[in-house]
Design a protein around this nucleic acid. Structure first.
Lengths: 210, 210
DNA sequence: GTCATAATTGACATTGTTGTCATTTCTGAC
DNA sequence: GTCAGAAATGACAACAATGTCAATTATGAC
């Protein structure tokens, strides 16, 4: 409809910088509060944590549910940015180990996001479908086709891998995880895929120390 | 202090039968509400679900927290009763498979308890420490000592097993699990422990169909 | 059946939460 | 620097939840 010849920037509203800053602040505050108090949190808590009045909250989200909805893509984005998904290894087992290490390190580096993901189903599901863990599925399919993994990439196999990574992710944010622990988890998961124990240990150790 | 010679039953208060019934009802209602609404539930919801006034609730629990505390042993008990922990197999791999199958079936049979366990850390921890899953730890230690499991029973190994069983338990209550799925999960976990794929498949299948 | 005792109830005061909106304060393009 | 437009504020009404307690009802041992 517009026939304006002024540059695009004019469509930006007056307080747009502050607006996006405040929105960001609210989302981060929500992650903190949610990580601490769980789903029973109140809008007031989030606003207070963000350092704004609760009236401001409603300037950004119609209600609690709208906040929760916004939190899903926000979490996935934050997590994916940390996981850094470019992995160039060609060997499927090495790829598997590398992706897993990155996912666990992303969890340790975004503890609030991880904590909330463990509590909120919608976020957890989104991380599984769009997050780094989704890469594992095609990795498993490729590896099985190529004969590298004797285990077929069925639901049970996926459950074992995702379940183990979720629990290891929890340990990571609780500070109960170190490189040795991560190495063991990945070594065992490689065994699950049919890699012999000795080789699994070597690949896991290499991925962790890379 | 008491020197009474009357039979023990006299120490039971007048309304003790009703009291324990109501308490039971409240705990069950709490599991239902908690499974549905999560931690944000109100005392009123629980009372309503139990079919009593909210005043009655306070007759049994000082406040929400006291209810949560009571829920932990109640859940463990309910779960353990269903899991039926007597397993007489002597082979460690068979023991492992059998215990795992029972744990997953207990989850499917107490969906509310399982759902709540997935949400409430304290309950989850209690199930891991005192519930059927705790049996797995000594099972792993024994099996490794006996040379049946090549994998040592360290934290990483436990994480893989517990994480996988938790996720499989979730699938079970969501109705996304069947015998074939359970068989695969257990087969993979046996491989994690160092059992060769073919044997793992046979043991898992036998445990599931027993 | 009786009845002392205990469980249950719901009104109440209190406090916390939600969502709105007129007013005030701030932002940033010019 | 100006100032139109946007963001932020906090008082407010409506409502929901908490915890208490005096009055009421039900229990079960005899």
């Amino acid at each position: 409809m517009s026939t304006s010849i002024t540059p695009e920037t004019t469509v930006l509203s007056r307080g747009h910088k502050k607006r996006s800053r405040t929105r960001q602040t609210l989302l981060d505050a929500a992650l903190e509060v949610l990580a601490e108090s769980g789903e029973g949190f109140s809008v007031g808590e989030v606003a207070a944590r963000a350092g704004v009045s609760h009236g401001t909250f409603y300037n950004y989200f119609g209600d609690r549910d709208e906040l929760m909805d916004a939190l899903v893509p926000y979490s996935v984005e934050a997590f994916a940015a940390r996981a850094d998904l470019e992995v160039d290894a060609t060997d499927q087992a090495v790829r598997f180990a590398t992706i897993s290490v990155r996912a666990l390190r992303a969890a340790a580096g975004s503890p609030n996001t991880m904590r909330v993901a463990l509590r909120i189903d919608a976020i957890q599901r989104a991380l599984l479908i769009q997050g780094p863990l989704s890469y594992l599925h095609s990795n498993l399919v490729d590896g099985h086709k190529a004969g590298r993994f004797s285990s077929s990439p069925d639901e049970g196999t996926l459950d074992v891998i995702l379940g183990a990574l979720l629990l290891a992710g929890r340990r990571a944010i609780e500070g109960e995880s170190d490189d040795r622990h991560i190495t063991t988890v990945i070594e065992r998961l490689l065994m699950t895929l049919g890699i012999e124990a000795g080789e699994a240990g070597r690949i896991a150790a290499a991925a962790v120390s890379s």
